[in-house]
Design a binder for these strands. Structure first.
Lengths: 335, 335
DNA sequence: CTGAAAGCGCTTACAG
DNA sequence: CTGAAAGCGCTTACAG
């Protein structure tokens, strides 16, 4: 494969000159147009393509973006909620001329021990997208401090909120859904959430509390016990909102509870999903998490971080995308 | 970030010695155990992680495998047939400690002109998986000649059959399905295939012809006209086999023809899919294309090519995986 | 047993 | 306007 040195020989110039010409002469070196053309022509004739590895070692960019997931990159269980993000990532990466490196090869056994090594490896790329709840503070903090561009997909508050991210605005989306319920006369609304404290869950809770300020609304954390909807009714609950997660745990528990009352679509209870209901239950009110757009915007943000167009401490490095409302038919007046 | 030079200083040895120790001393250089330990300790203390870019430039391996698709890596239209392959690829790559590079960044406009450049770029990786019908002879041939390890996913006969691949054994799988029909008494069987000449289509046709040798079996290539099943019946056809492709074109055409006779499951015609029917029509006889396994085996083969465990001209560099039969209920006796 | 040197293919100051 | 030099962080013969 031809190298710059070969072109230099063919064009009768130095290898450094070839480098300058081929890199578009960003350094604005003065140069005879004839020389430039001669180099370009020789490069064309020899079928030259730069070696990305050497480029990366010598300079700082190789037009490759990393994608680091803490579990598997192509999950089989939660593929539905995950795939759209990948689609968005690829779409935008392609549009911006970036290749993608999937860091999957981080050994078997002791993953925790390998994390630091694995994460440091992301440096092959110009920058890296991270996806997952897991934030290994030290490793990520080290990357951040060294100025390595990185973007989390999904909001992250760790490391004093210094992590750039592109997330979904669950607070507003939830508030809007719940406000609609309140507008319809509901005064006792219950938020069914799962056990863990993912930002997406606590953000929903925040939006919920904003919309129900002053009302007897309450949050029910899912435990092993299942849900007693009749008891909730007796407590005066007239509407239930349930969070969507990639495992559908809370949603499924609610569905189960509804079915045990022989009601998939209850007439004495309004329902809404804080997210998008599964396709089968398309009529349920909720909102759409803009996964594909999150993928796209994460790539855009990462590239702007790489080009230093914006700094990693800039407010613009943390983005929350709006969620589109999904109409549905399960939010009615109080019964 | 600490480099080998830093470790060398800390351990009081030369940088080259550090390199030898850290790379596991494959060159079997004699070395005092104490020195080795001192180096290892210093590396640990400094939190050293090798720079993959430099490693790749200096040596020949960086434990990264390329994945080059001629369309989009994450398609939205044919995701179902595609995703399992990715799952297999990732699974095996992870198991073998390999990262994955997705070559998506090959500019917009003139793709054809960029192909050579884009394909040459795959050299960043230790080897590359290719996926798609498209075989740009010159570029792939160049890679092959230079000894660059590559594996196609799906059988490819181009370049005098010199391309390593992992495909599905459509010939045998089809033959078995059709033999079952023949065994059930069918003598006039029709194979419905699509227009193009993909290996997966011609392989099916070959298996079909093997099983129907001596019988009046015939192949119908789908055109714009739709299918007249009544006419086929009058011609004496008692069984139809239809190929599965990622677009389902032929299968959908057949379904349409069946529906126009108000029969989704005809009683005067036996049916089989050369592949797996869509979930809704699970009862249809067919076979399962082992997509995930193809992904896995392609990675395994690629790694063996990279390690020179097998040569690219070895027969072992071209693999056909068996397809598991899918029982179904649509293959009956002649009516 | 260990170190000094060359080289992988580039980029980027720095001299002329 | 162009070239010579150093360097990115490694590996790999080759000397001692």
């Amino acid at each position: 494969m031809p190298r710059q040195a070969d072109i230099a020989r063919a064009a009768g110039v130095s290898q450094a000159t070839v480098s300058v010409v081929l890199s578009g002469n960003r350094a604005r070196v003065r140069m005879a147009e004839a020389t430039r053309l001669r180099v370009l022509e020789a490069a064309e004739k020899l079928g030259y393509v730069p070696d990305p590895v050497a480029t990366r070692l010598a300079s700082s960019r190789n037009h490759m973006l990393g994608l680091y997931t803490f579990k598997t990159t192509f999950p089989t269980d939660v593929a539905d909620s995950y795939y759209p993000i990948l689609v968005g990532v690829e779409e935008e990466a392609a549009a911006l001329g970036q290749d993608l490196i999937l860091f999957t090869g981080r050994g078997g056994a002791d993953r925790r021990a390998h994390d630091a090594t694995a994460i440091r490896r992301t440096r092959v790329a110009d920058g890296c997208l991270f996806f997952g709840r897991h934030v290994p503070d030290e490793a990520i903090g080290g990357l951040l401090e060294s100025g390595f561009p990185l973007v989390y997909i999904g909001r992250r508050a760790e490391l004093d909120g210094r992590i750039p991210f592109v997330g979904a605005d669950y607070v507003s989306a939830t508030r809007q859904v719940v406000e609609r319920l309140v507008h319809n006369g509901h005064r006792n609304i219950r938020y069914l959430r799962e056990q863990d404290d993912a930002p997406s869950s606590t953000d929903r809770e925040r939006g919920f509390r904003q919309a129900t300020a002053g009302l007897p609304a309450s949050v029910h954390r899912l435990d092993g016990d299942g849900i007693d909807l009749d008891a909730w009714r007796r407590e005066g609950v007239t509407a239930v909102v349930v969070e969507e997660t990639d495992t559908w745990t809370a949603y499924n528990a609610l569905t189960l509870a509804l079915e045990s009352r022989n009601l998939t679509c209850p007439d004495d209870l309004s329902l809404a999903v804080l997210g998008r209901p599964p396709v089968e239950s398309a009529a349920v009110t909720g909102f759409a998490v803009p996964r594909r757009e999150m993928g796209r915007q994460a790539v855009r943000l990462l590239v702007r971080l790489i080009t230093r167009e914006i700094g990693q401490d800039s407010p613009a490095a943390q983005q929350l995308l709006p969620c589109a409302p999904v109409g549905g038919t399960t939010v009615g007046p109080v019964r």
